[in-house]
Design a protein around this nucleic acid. Structure first.
Lengths: 331, 331
DNA sequence: TTGTAGGCGTTATCAA
DNA sequence: TTGATAACGCCTACAA
């Protein structure tokens, strides 16, 4: 592992010239440049980025705070973040929090200790327990539900769930079950609002017994399915707050010999890749995962560049995806 | 953003003492320690890890080279890597390669330029195009197929696929289709070997028309399903080289009104979370994802610590997972 | 166009 | 137990 000094000696020039040859080649004469590059090849020199970054007080790394790495939705977002970051010379440090504020604080420390320049927060914002914003931490929130006290990129979950529940109603359903995420999750709250608004608009009373609280996992969706299947007054359609739970619910409906969608319709949320491959294929809401990831990274880059964002909040459009899991109700 | 000098001044001690207070508290008197800590609180000091790492010539970061983020199998592995790394003070830099050697080289550069201390390679090893081992790069391979010229953690894919195809045969199947990954993928090769060995052992001739080359995606599994469905001599069972393709195939069988498993049995590989929730639940091979991730990280840590591993290769055990996608054939 | 030299924040060596 | 000081590798005024 050679350093710049060795290259300089070998090339018969000064350290400064070698440095310039890398960062500002046009400020170096052709002959010097050649001598330097030859020497570089000879000794196999690579600039020490740790030194360079240290010197420039920038780490060129960004931490992505993600609740659950094994959630395909986040995988997509992270991919977009990485691609965008890479184009601008930034690396991505993984920070899986698994909903632990302690772990989150640990990752935030990476910024405080200068191992990262900023943070992209993928967990939804819960004011009471939020560690961000932090005076010394550049941060952007993405994929959240409500607005945050710092820049964010998200979609309108109320409107999205409103539209899909509305669709269910337009298909003749009036007894519509709801599988929610944990009730204190902001996404759950917003999507529940949309559900209730759609019911209200159609003059349907909200029925507490049709609301089942899951936690966004397939398992909890399955549990919800069992619950609905055993209800004496079974719903004719179910609005699931994500695709994963919908899959679990479908599974348990089938186990109870309830046909989907003939006996019960169901909708999802997220439009994960496998939503096309479930049986039946899921009618769902597509979240613009890639767009959110990309936009979030660009926003953070801008902030790191010292330019405050023009808007605090960027709301991206969702998409209604029609497939086969909903059928006209004719009771 | 204050530095150690400021803390020293404030505490009325030397910078050396401040440094020791952090790295070697017991070498500092109680009174000095208190003075330092008070000063630290006052000015909100955080050690600059960039400087510290620079000084120690270690970045405490490790790059994980992963072909595809949106593959839940890798998500699990990476999670285990991160958890293990974190316990030892290491951070994880994400490196999604998407099978591009160019991108891979970019990430490897992170190690050459000292932004990372080592690499965990999750792509299977293909000797002709392999960038590793590299003289200056500490690396460990995980989840690969064949042996690598550097330390690796993997399972025996030949044995695993042998066992599951053997199970199919024991259930009376003799016409067994195979959905493989790309034929030049080492995993595909090994699993194909296991498939062929099981057939051979049962005295069944290998039939080329029963082999469909996919690429490990659901879409390609679906294509395979279409292919098998339209075959005049349809197989009675299908060995899919991963769960994802099995899901795709099941979908297309159903579209062709072929019942699974009554009309055709199928098996998967990986045992992803959703393998329980497919219809029918998948009989499959569980890869020890977490164990491989953890072991790989520990191995790399050991190498970074200057201790060469006791073995070059660690073969972890797979597990046969019996569920509902295979049924006795009684033709 | 080039070289000299100072400094980034930390740790480690060596004396005191 | 402490402090002064020399690195670590690089960049960048500044001067030549």
């Amino acid at each position: 592992m050679s350093n710049i000094r060795e290259v300089a000696k070998r090339a018969g020039v000064s350290i400064a010239t070698v440095s310039r040859a890398f960062t500002n080649p046009d400020k170096v004469s052709q002959s010097s440049l050649k001598k330097v590059m030859d020497a570089v090849d000879e000794v196999g020199y690579r600039p020490n980025m740790m030194a360079r970054n240290f010197r420039s007080t920038k780490s060129y790394a960004v931490v992505v705070l993600v609740p659950d790495f094994a959630n395909l939705f986040f995988s997509k977002v992270i991919r977009a973040i990485q691609e965008t970051g890479q184009k601008h010379g930034y690396n991505i440090l993984l920070g899986e929090t698994r909903d632990s504020k302690e772990r989150e604080a640990d990752y935030l420390k990476l910024v405080e200790t200068r191992q990262a320049d900023g943070v992209i927060q993928l967990s939804p914002h819960i004011p009471e327990q939020e560690l961000l914003p932090h005076p010394h931490i550049s941060a952007v929130a993405a994929c959240g539900a409500c607005d945050t006290p710092y820049a964010s990129v998200r979609m309108d979950h109320i409107a999205a769930s409103f539209s899909i529940v509305n669709y269910l109603i337009s298909m003749g359903h009036r007894k519509i079950g709801c599988i929610s995420g944990l009730s204190d999750n902001p996404h759950s709250r917003d999507r529940l609002k949309g559900y209730k608004q759609a019911l209200a608009k159609a003059g349907i009373d909200f029925d507490d017994s049709l609301l089942y609280e899951g936690n966004f996992t397939m398992q909890s969706g399955h549990d919800a399915g069992v619950y609905f299947a055993q209800l004496s007054q079974r719903p004719t359609a179910v609005f699931s707050m994500n695709d994963l739970m919908a899959v679990g619910a479908i599974k348990s409906f089938k186990e109870h010999n309830i046909r989907v969608p003939q006996d019960i319709s169901i909708t999802g949320f997220d439009d994960l890749d496998f939503a096309t491959y479930t049986d039946p294929a899921l009618t769902t809401i597509r979240q613009p995962a890639e767009e959110m990831g990309k936009k979030a990274m660009l926003l953070l880059l801008q902030i790191l560049d010292g330019k405050p964002p023009t808007q605090q909040e960027f709301i991206l459009k969702h998409e209604f995806v029609l497939r086969d899991s909903v059928v006209q109700f004719s009771g």
